[in-house]
Nucleic acid binder design. Structure first.
Lengths: 210, 210
DNA sequence: ACTATAAACGGACTTCGGTCCGGTTAGTTG
DNA sequence: CAACTAACCGGACCGAAGTCCGTTTATAGT
C-alpha cells in the first residue's frame, strides 16, 4: 500500500480549483530543474525512452526526489504536459468562438473535436508516453475530468436527449489518444476522415426523438 | 528490437483463421502446465497480482519458458482468457438469435452490448489485468479485431450511413473494459443505465439522413 | 540568533518484466 | 539405431520503476 506523501501531494494540478502546494524553496528549485531536464531529455531521445533515473541524474538530484515530487512516471509526464494542456483548456473554456464561449453549444461541440485532435497531434509522443498503464487510473486523470465536464455541459446546453454522462464518455472515447494514433498511423486514415467522423458523431448525439 | 521466436510464435491465437503451431510434445505439456498454474494462481490471489516468475515456479518450469511460449505478461493473460473469449465469439457469430445470426442486423447490434457487458463483467479482473500497457498494441489484439469486424459488418448490414469503420470504433470504445469498470465501480452507475446508454448509442448510429 | 520540527534529500534496495545463451532433447532421416 | 538439427529448456542476468530510511535543511516561533 502506498500512502500519500506527508505534504507535497505529488502534483494533482490541472483541476480548475487548485491550491498551490507552497513548496519549500529548495523543493521548488528542484522541481523546476527536474521539469527542465525531463523536457530536454524527452526532446532529445523521445518521451517513450525517458527513464526516471536519467531525469534525476540529469537534474543532479536523487531518484527519490523525482518520485516524491511527481509520484510516478505518468505523473512526471503529465506534469510535463501540464503547460500545453492548460493552453488547450483556456482555448475551449475562455478562448475565441466557436471553440470558446460565444457560439451556440452545438457549434462548440463540433469545434472541439478537430481542436483536440490537432492539439494532441502536436504533442503525440508525450501524450502517448503519459498514458496510465493502469486502466482504472486512466479515467481519473484531472485533464480527462475537465474535458468530460466540458463536453457534458455543452451536450446538456445543446439540448440533447441522450444521457449526457454517457454521451460525454462516448465522445471522449472517440478522441482517445491511443485510438487516434492507431487510426492515423497504423490504419493510415487521413486526419480529415477522423474529423468528419467526429462531426457525424456529434450530430448523432444531438438528433432528437429518434 | 525484439525478433519473433524461431518457430513457436508466442500465441497469436483467436484470429479466425488459425494455423495450429504444432508444438513439440514437451512444449505442449509445459504450455498446459503453465496455463493451469496461472489459472490457479489468478483465482487464488487475483489476476492483478500474478507474476510471471510465480507462474513459472508453480508450473515447475524455467522463467524463460513462460516468455518463449506467451511472449509477455499480457500474452499469458490473453491466453488464459482465450477460452472464455472463444465462447463469447461463438455466441455472437454462430449462437442463437438475436445475438447470433438469424435476427436483423439492428437487433443483433442492440443485443451485442449487453452480452459483451455481462461477459466482461463475469471475468472483470482477468480482462483488466490483460490490458496492454502500450496504447498502440491495445488496438491490435486479435479479440478486438474480431469484435470490430463483427460490428462493422452489422452496421453496414443495418444500412447505416455513418462511416462504418469509425462507428465500429466508437461502439467498441463504449464497451472498453477499463471504461465500463470505471463507470460501474468508481462512478457507481447501475448496469442498467450503461446498457440503456448502449441502446441509445446504437440507435443513433442507425438514424438516417440527420 | 537559537531551536525545534516538518519537509526534503539521496541513493541503496527490492521487485518484476524481459533477454540471453550454453546445454538438453524430441523428432526426423538414412 | 545412430546421428543430426531445430526447437526447447532453465536460470543467471539486466534495466527500470518504485520503496525505504537515515541524514540534512528550510522555515517558523521564541
Amino acid at each position: 500500500m502506498t500512502s500519500p506523501p506527508p505534504h507535497g501531494r505529488t502534483e494533482l494540478s490541472l483541476t480548475p480549483v487548485e491550491a498551490p502546494p507552497q513548496l519549500r524553496a529548495d523543493a521548488a528549485r528542484n522541481r523546476a530543474r527536474l521539469l527542465e531536464a525531463a523536457a530536454r531529455l524527452a526532446a532529445e531521445q523521445g518521451a517513450a525512452n525517458l527513464t526516471m533515473e536519467a531525469v534525476a541524474c540529469a537534474a543532479q538530484v536523487g531518484k527519490g526526489t523525482v518520485f516524491r515530487r511527481f509520484g510516478d512516471r505518468p505523473g512526471l509526464l503529465l506534469a510535463l504536459l501540464d503547460h500545453q494542456e492548460q493552453r488547450f483548456q483556456e482555448a475551449f473554456m475562455s478562448g475565441p468562438a466557436p471553440l470558446g464561449p460565444g457560439a451556440p453549444a452545438g457549434e462548440r461541440l463540433h469545434a472541439f473535436g478537430p481542436a483536440a485532435l490537432r492539439h494532441e497531434d502536436a504533442h503525440r509522443d508525450l501524450y502517448l508516453a503519459a498514458v496510465q498503464p493502469d486502466p482504472a487510473r486512466r479515467h481519473t486523470v484531472p485533464a480527462r475530468l475537465v474535458r468530460h465536464t466540458h463536453l457534458a455541459v455543452l451536450l446538456r446546453e445543446a439540448g440533447t436527449d441522450a444521457d449526457v454522462e454517457l454521451a460525454a464518455q462516448t465522445l471522449l472515447g472517440y478522441l482517445d489518444t491511443g485510438l487516434v494514433h492507431h487510426l492515423l498511423t497504423v490504419r493510415g486514415l487521413p486526419l480529415a476522415r477522423v474529423e468528419a467522423g467526429w462531426h457525424d458523431l456529434v450530430s448523432r448525439m444531438l438528433v432528437r426523438g429518434h
